[in-house]
Design a protein around this nucleic acid. Structure first.
Length: 195
DNA sequence: CGCCAGATTGACT
DNA sequence: GTCAATCTGGCGG
C-alpha cells in the first residue's frame, strides 16, 4: 500500500465518536531510527471529558485529563497496567475527548515490530492497545507530539476505504456510557480479542 | 513522600 | 474460563 497524505489537523476537530469511526482504514505511521513502521487502523474507541465515567478527565485535573481539552491532533500517551496506550486528542471546538487506537493491521516494518514484540506471530503483533505501542516503540517520548505534521516521528495518513464497520461497547472499562463507543473493521483478523 | 486504581496482557486451570 | 504481574500519574498526608 502506497503512503497516503497526512490527515490535516481539522480532521480531529469533530465529535470523538465520529473521528474514531473515520480513523478505521487510516494508516498509523511511525519513523523509528530511520525505519518506517506502519499499520492500518482496524479498531478504535472514543472517550469524552468529565461527562464520561471511563475517561481520564472524569474527576481529574491532571496533565492527561487537561490534554483532552486541549489542541486536537496531538498524541496522548499514558500508561496503564505497565503498558503505554496511544490516543489522539479529538473533539469539537470547546469540547473534550480523544480516540484510543486499539489495533492495527501491520503493513510495513513487520520485521522490526516482531523484534520489538519478541514474537513471530503476525496476528498477535498489534492486536491490542498495549501490543501496538510495544510493536512501534510508542512511549512517553511521543506524548503531546502532533500527528498531522510531516516532521513528526508519528503521523496518521490516508489509507483505504473501510466498508464493514461494526461497533460495540468499550473494552476493559469499569464504567461505560450507555452508547457503544468502540469501532472496528468487522472481518479483520487483526482486531483485539474479547467482545 | 506513600498509596493505589487502572482504557492490559500473558500464563495458567 | 481465571488470575496476578505490571508501573505510571494523580492525589492525599
Amino acid at each position: 500500500m502506497r503512503m497516503g497524505r497526512i490527515l490535516p489537523q481539522d480532521f480531529y476537530a469533530r465529535d470523538p465518536a465520529l473521528v474514531a469511526m473515520n480513523l478505521l482504514g487510516k494508516v498509523l505511521c511511525r519513523v523509528l531510527r530511520g525505519i518506517i513502521l506502519a499499520g492500518v487502523i482496524v479498531e478504535t474507541e472514543a472517550y469524552y471529558g468529565e461527562t464520561d465515567p471511563a475517561s481520564r478527565a472524569y474527576r481529574s485535573r491532571g496533565d492527561i485529563a487537561m490534554m483532552l481539552y486541549g489542541d486536537v491532533g496531538r498524541a496522548l500517551v499514558y500508561g496503564v497496567h505497565g503498558k503505554w496506550l496511544f490516543n489522539v486528542v479529538a473533539h469539537e471546538p470547546h469540547g473534550s475527548g480523544g480516540v484510543l487506537i486499539r489495533a492495527l493491521e501491520p503493513i510495513r516494518g513487520v520485521e522490526m515490530m516482531k523484534k520489538l514484540r519478541k514474537i513471530d506471530d503476525l496476528l498477535k503483533l498489534t492486536n491490542g492497545p498495549g501490543r501496538l505501542t510495544e510493536a512501534m516503540d510508542i512511549n512517553k517520548n511521543l506524548h503531546k507530539k502532533p500527528v498531522y505534521l510531516n516532521s513528526s516521528e508519528i503521523t496518521i495518513r490516508e489509507g483505504r476505504k473501510e466498508e464493514n464497520i461494526a461497533r460495540s461497547f468499550r473494552i476493559g472499562v469499569t464504567k461505560d456510557l450507555d452508547i457503544p463507543l468502540r469501532f472496528y473493521v468487522k472481518n479483520s483478523r487483526f482486531v483485539s480479542v474479547r467482545a
